[in-house]
Design a protein around this nucleic acid. Structure first.
Lengths: 208, 208
DNA sequence: GTCTATATAGGGATAGAC
DNA sequence: GTCTATCCCTATATAGAC
């Protein structure tokens, strides 16, 4: 989803910028509505209304509802990438101490946590429209954590002899599951506190 | 959702049993379709067709789609209760060693794991139809685990000085999150193995 | 208890004017 | 780039016959 302005050299600059703006507005409106009612539960008309266009006008920018979904998940991934890189850092135990950054980010923008939790569940099966995206996302997340843990082993911060693949799967699972419980019941589950405790527990388990 | 046959004493036994059978057939068909396409993505007509009745015929048994949803989640909860009790046992570290029973159960009947993962995500917000059910379900699950851990402390199996509420939230989170990753990517994530490793890791963390 | 028929609403996508 | 109009399909729920 590269939105390079040079790709349509024949169009005027004003048109391009108005067009790009509309696309962004639509993606942001769709993000919010998909989060609250899911992909299946959201109509294009509702998204269009929030932006101030008609449903047909929306489909001028995104040929289909599925294309819009793809734009939404790609946009979110791109926005989250810097934070994830910051948390990863150079791997090792430091990663575990920075999990609270992720929690604070998620609490600040609860709608976005909601979006991913909802969309993952709507795309668990291969027949679902964004299944490939989420399968790949989780795989690369697990791989990145394994790499970070390996780096920590090389520096002697992390014990050897632990199954890093299994640990990384368990870390992702805990992050996901805590987020779900927090979304469902924010009065009983404190996300920031839970992530801090998770990090501390992992530190005790993995420190050399 | 008590389906006590004595409640309609004026109807013939045959009618009653046919009626109860239909209800069960409908609930089971709905379970499967809700799991695959979610509550919002499933039409009553599809469920009805699978049972061999019309959509209007289905609504004779359940006044509304939402009532059917409630019947589905209650039915599933009732069916799962014995296994959960078996795993809990008398609490303590034994609970952690029996997590693989849950994994085996979930793998055997993958459709049911799918159902709950999908429905939880569709009911994260208070405005969603089964939100109360899932909020309460998670609360009681966490409470049951806390009770089990406390029992283990009293017997001296489990260390004192750990935050049992936090641990129980983390256990539920890991179980949930591992299931999600397994559903999404069964080739890369082995649920039974993951649950065993989770249990072993928790044992190391909690054993006195 | 199950059906047909219908009310009423909403969905996504396309054609064509401006 | 945006609109109106429309197509066609699907949805839940109800009314009333059998």
């Amino acid at each position: 989803m590269t939105t390079d302005p040079v790709r349509k050299p024949h169009a005027s600059l004003e048109t391009l910028e108005r067009g790009r703006l509309r696309r962004i507005q639509i993606v942001e409106a769709a993000t919010e509505l998909f989060a609250h009612a899911g992909y299946r539960g959201t109509g294009l008309a509702g998204i269009a209304a929030q932006v101030g266009v008609t449903q047909a006008g929306l489909l001028h920018h995104f040929g289909s509802k599925e294309a819009l979904l793809e734009a939404v998940v790609r946009h979110r991934s791109e926005q989250d990438a810097p934070l994830i890189e910051e948390i990863m850092g150079d791997g090792g135990l430091g990663m575990l101490d920075r999990l609270h950054l992720l929690a604070e980010h998620n609490v600040e923008r609860a709608g976005l946590s909601l979006l991913f939790t909802v969309l993952v569940a709507e795309n668990l099966l291969p027949s679902h429209p964004a299944n490939d995206f989420f399968v790949e996302r989780y795989r690369s997340l697990r791989r990145a954590i394994v790499a970070g843990l390996k780096a920590g082993q090389k520096r002697g911060e992390i014990r050897k002899g632990v199954d890093l693949e299994a640990v990384s799967t368990r870390i992702v699972a805990a992050l996901d599951g805590l987020q779900t419980q927090w979304l469902l019941d924010p009065d009983e589950v404190d996300l920031v506190r839970s992530y801090r405790e998770l990090g501390a527990s992992l530190r005790r388990e993995l420190a050399a």
